[in-house]
């Protein structure tokens, strides 16, 4: 049996039981159904309108690499209110477990239970009354680095800025590591994903995405790092996992120049299984 089959067997057993439930407002059948979908395709993990992109990207890594651990974690959270992934202890507070998820949150129960729990266990201030997008609740790189290390990932490389853009060589290194088999998360401003906003220059990062293909860069500036000049003929293309699916950047077949890429790019975290 494959890891995915093992994971699904755990879900089958979970669905047959009727108790316990540590989350009074979540339903077992809905969580079980969501688990199956994500075991089949981890890209289905989707933070919806919450600011849980950091936990979403991390959880996708676990679901992809260790589907059985992913299923067990969600099941244990549901039934006992706590779990561990490697050395990462996930113990959401009572308030979170009792929170009634609003319809506007746009997040599935199976994702909410683990993504919000990871964030809650990080001791980060979290407004339980509003799952709506809140840039101030973005996962900081050091937290994400720590989750990966505790979960058992090796060779974790954190080359990010929390307050200033990174340059093209940084992005090329991220791409090179991806090609070498590392899992790579990019720290960006979501402007980059929007056809309308991709040429806006951001002041801060607000989103995590996972690289799903090497980054293609055509630019004179690749050989001249450290400048913020624009090569008008430059072109940067990438593909990332974001908000529950794989998306092309730039969207809609447009051209993204090196300058506008860099102005919404804040570095990467890479790791090995």
């Amino acid at each position: 049996m494959s890891d995915q089959d093992d994971a699904k067997a755990l879900v089958d057993d979970f669905e047959k039981r009727t108790a316990p439930n540590s989350w009074p407002h979540l339903t077992r059948s809905e969580v079980a159904s969501g688990l199956r979908s994500r075991i089949d395709d981890p890209d289905n993990i989707d933070q919806g309108n919450t600011s849980l992109c950091g936990p979403a990207d991390f959880t996708r890594d676990i679901a992809e690499d260790r589907p059985k651990d992913y299923a067990r974690a969600v099941i244990q959270l549901f039934e006992t209110g706590g779990t561990r992934i490697g050395d990462l202890d996930i113990r959401p507070g009572h308030d979170l477990r009792g929170h009634i998820l609003s319809a506007g949150a746009g997040i599935a129960q199976v994702d909410w239970i683990i993504l919000a729990s990871i964030r809650d266990s990080d001791n980060w201030f979290f407004d339980y009354q509003s799952e709506s997008d809140d840039a101030s609740a973005i996962t900081m790189p050091h937290s994400k680095e720590s989750w990966l290390k505790k979960a058992g990932y090796r060779e974790v490389i954190n080359d990010t800025n929390a307050v200033a853009c990174k340059d093209l060589p940084n992005a090329i290194r991220a791409s090179s590591l991806f090609s070498q088999g590392y899992k790579v998360a990019l720290f960006i401003n979501a402007n980059m994903l929007s056809a309308d906003d991709m040429n806006d220059v951001s002041l801060t990062p607000d989103h995590w995405v996972a690289l799903t293909k090497p980054i293609k860069v055509q630019s004179f500036n690749v050989a001249h790092p450290g400048t913020l000049n624009e090569d008008p003929n430059s072109r940067v293309e990438l593909e990332v996992y974001s908000w529950g699916k794989t998306v092309a950047v730039p969207p809609g077949g447009k051209r993204l120049t090196d300058y506008h890429f860099r102005c919404n790019y804040y570095g990467f975290i890479a790791c090995r299984r």
């Binding site: 060589p169 090329i172 860069v217």
Partner: peptide
């Protein structure tokens, strides 16, 4: 061609 030529140079520089 540009990517092949320039990427190693940038990496070396990095």
């Amino acid at each position: 061609i540009l990517a092949i030529v320039t990427v190693p140079a940038a990496l070396a520089s990095c």
